[in-house]
């Protein structure tokens, strides 16, 4: 691997560290990587070591970064993965649940469950409201 490419690989790995760490160590770490590469250490193994170090750095609770924040970050990552899997799964054709021979009833014809109609008791002593919507001369 040539020097500029090795440098880019190491820099990419160093960008994975938290900002606090980069402010403190990034310059020094890049220089150390160059010295190790000059000694014959493969750039890929150095980048891998930095990547593993970055993962540890993010997952280690710090005084300024509470454990709950780390747990939330992990939870968000797991949820994102779950949503992605669900989206991929939903692209498969869904089975039809409505009979094609009968079109769905219009919204005003859907019966209201008794639990959602508090005054659902038949008002025999009051006049019944007339349904004046078109098409209601016959049952739905």
């Amino acid at each position: 691997m040539n020097a500029p490419r090795a440098g880019r690989l190491v820099e990419a790995a160093l960008r994975c560290y938290p900002a606090r760490w980069r402010r403190r160590h990034a310059d020094e770490a890049a220089e150390l990587a160059m010295l190790l590469i000059r000694d014959g250490t493969p750039a890929r193994s150095i980048a891998w070591s930095y990547l593993a170090g970055a993962a540890r750095e993010w997952l280690t609770p710090r005084p300024g970064r509470r454990l709950s924040v780390v747990a939330c970050a992990l939870l968000v990552a797991v949820c994102s993965l779950g949503v992605s899997v669900a989206l991929v799964a939903s692209t498969q054709p869904a089975r039809a649940v409505v009979s094609p021979s009968r079109p769905p009833a219009p919204a005003h014809c859907v019966p209201i469950p008794a639990s959602h109609a508090p005054n659902a008791a038949p008002a025999t002593d009051r006049p019944q409201p007339a349904n004046r919507e078109p098409g209601h001369d016959r049952p739905c």
């Binding site: 760490w21 160590h25 770490a29 150390l32 990587a33 190790l36 193994s45 150095i46 891998w48 070591s49 930095y50 990547l51 593993a52 170090g53 970055a54 540890r56 750095e57």
Partner: peptide, 8 residues
């Protein structure tokens, strides 16, 4: 020691 391990 890997450099990542060293800085950790």
């Amino acid at each position: 020691l890997g450099p990542g391990t060293l800085y950790g």
